[in-house]
Nucleic acid binder design. Structure first.
Length: 247
DNA sequence: ACCTATGTTGATAC
DNA sequence: GGTATCAACATAGG
């Protein structure tokens, strides 16, 4: 599920774990915890407490009281669960002195847990970037707008579903080269992106978007009633309605 | 069996 | 350097 709205929900879950002493860490999944060896994250965190929970795009991290930051990513299917019984898909777990626990629950194991995460190549958060910076980072070059939105180094947090939802709301073709968008179109795109993120956070996730139900075989546009187009753009399956979103 | 999947990274080539 | 394409990663579900 995870795109920016899901990551924000996960951040809020991490906040509920702040201040609780860490007494044990399960970091034995060497793929999820790479490049750390088993026990490395544990020895760095045991005895400490999380003191703040942050997010940029889909990247999460928690500060600790004197220890290193803990970086978390939900990958393709992860979520953060608090004080729930273990059920087999918990790939990384903090256990607290009060008996509670915080787990990265992730069937596909594409999530990540690392100490001292490096966000040098992560762009500004998609929902918070200023108009000016959005124009500069998104509007430059010749790449298709869909591919640019997915590039976490340009702006962070937009995934495949949110990109399609946003472009549909903004009535922009996913294929348009970014450099051909006017300043007004870029501002409009940013506005619709923020609105899509806000709606998704409020309603429980990106899958609650208005475009999502139409995104299926034989789907028709809620606005123009025409047929769905489908192609691979930016390496991901992309859906749009050419009448509403002309090239 | 084959295909797809809400993500990221690294390799390769123009 | 920018852009495009892929393969890989690990697993589930249609």
């Amino acid at each position: 599920m995870p795109e920016l709205p899901e990551a924000e929900r996960a951040r809020q879950q991490i906040e509920r774990a702040l201040g609780r002493e860490i007494v044990a860490v399960d970091d034995t999944d060497v793929y999820v915890c790479r490049p750390h060896a088993p026990g490395e994250i544990a020895s760095a965190l045991v005895g400490h407490r999380l003191t703040a929970a942050h997010r940029r795009g889909k990247f999460l991290w928690a500060e600790t009281d004197g220890g290193p930051d803990l970086g978390l990513h939900l990958g393709m299917a992860g979520r953060i669960v608090l004080d729930e019984e273990p059920i087999g898909w918990d790939r990384f777990v903090l256990e607290f002195a009060d008996g509670g626990r915080m787990a990265l629950r992730d069937k596909r194991r594409l999530g990540r847990a690392v100490v001292e995460p490096d966000f040098a190549h992560v762009g500004p958060d998609a929902a918070e970037v200023s108009r000016q910076v959005f124009r500069e980072r998104v509007g430059r070059g010749t790449i298709a707008i869909k591919a640019r939105l997915l590039d976490q180094g340009s702006i962070a947090g937009v995934g495949n579903l949110l990109a399609d939802e946003t472009l549909w709301r903004a009535r922009l073709s996913p294929r348009r080269p970014v450099g051909e968008l006017s300043v007004d179109e870029l501002d409009h795109l940013r506005r619709e992106l923020r609105a899509a993120v806000r709606d998704a956070i409020r309603n429980g996730g990106v899958h609650t978007g208005r475009f999502m139900p139409a995104r299926e075989k034989g789907g028709s546009c809620p606005r123009c009633k025409t047929l769905l187009a489908r192609d691979t753009i930016g390496g991901r399956t992309t859906y749009w309605f050419p009448k509403c979103q002309p090239d």
